[in-house]
């Protein structure tokens, strides 16, 4: 009878190897990656533009400048109109749903790939790490571009409403006016937008990837999209 060597334990891959595989995957799937990233970019651009417009509006009201179109609008005591709050909440929802959806689709269409990698000896943790790295990178770059586009949009709108005064009172940094609400400032809004985009992308992708990695490979490979 031949030897019965006990089955050994699978080793962990070095981090650099995971990083290399995830970047390779993004690069070869470039077209698809761009579409997924564009979903993140759009969500964050919408959120950041609404938010930044709001910051600009408050800053210029504080300074006594009135927008030519907002003059007659009913404002709350804090200076933020209910319409603005409504818009920010709506854009946040659109952003969350949009990003979660695009990440979910991107992972679901790769169930077969996940099953195949497990057949070749991938550990569940490796599969999850791969998606974490890919989505983290996509999330950050998509959100950063989105935040910059959103800010640019808000600035252009602001220029139309307030003219060059905008630049004198531009709310770049956080500020706490004596009689007004706390202002986050545009930089903080951009950073928050990037953070949100990245977190949403990572959650939206690693949760389904984790579920797929837990499945027996036969089941993962059976999944049709």
């Amino acid at each position: 009878m031949q030897q019965r060597t006990p089955i050994e334990e699978q080793i962990d891959l070095p981090f650099m190897e995971s990083l290399r595989i995830s970047f390779q995957s993004l690069k070869i799937r470039f077209g698809r990656s761009v579409i997924t990233t564009a979903g993140i970019t759009l969500g964050i651009a919408f959120l950041v533009s609404v938010w930044t417009s709001n910051e600009i509006g408050i800053a210029l009201q504080e300074s006594g400048r009135q927008s030519t179109i907002n003059t007659f609008e009913e404002t709350t005591e804090a200076g933020i109109s209910t319409k603005d709050i409504w818009l920010i909440v709506m854009s946040l929802i659109v952003c969350v749903v949009g990003i979660a959806n695009s990440m979910l689709m991107a992972v679901t269409e790769r169930f077969r790939e996940i099953g195949t990698m497990k057949c070749l000896g991938a550990l569940d943790g490796f599969v999850v790490r791969l998606f974490l790295l890919e989505s983290g990178f996509q999330g950050f770059s998509g959100a950063l571009i989105g935040a910059l586009i959103g800010t640019l949009g808000a600035v252009l709108l602001g220029l139309k409403d307030y003219g060059l005064d905008l630049f004198f009172y531009f709310p770049l940094l956080p500020a706490q006016p004596e009689d007004g609400p706390m202002q986050l400032g545009v930089i903080v809004v951009i950073l928050l937008g990037c953070f949100l985009g990245m977190v949403l992308a990572v959650i939206g992708s690693s949760f389904p990837a984790w579920r797929a990695a837990k499945l027996p490979p036969a089941e993962a490979m059976r999944t049709e999209v």
């Binding site: 089955i7 050994e8 334990e9 699978q10 080793i11 497990k118 057949c119 070749l120 000896g121 991938a122 550990l123 569940d124 490979p217």
Partner: peptide, 14 residues
């Protein structure tokens, strides 16, 4: 009776 790591190694090597 194999652990997850052993099953992965089994698929990988055997």
């Amino acid at each position: 009776q194999l652990s997850q790591r052993q099953i992965a190694a089994f698929r990988c090597h055997r």
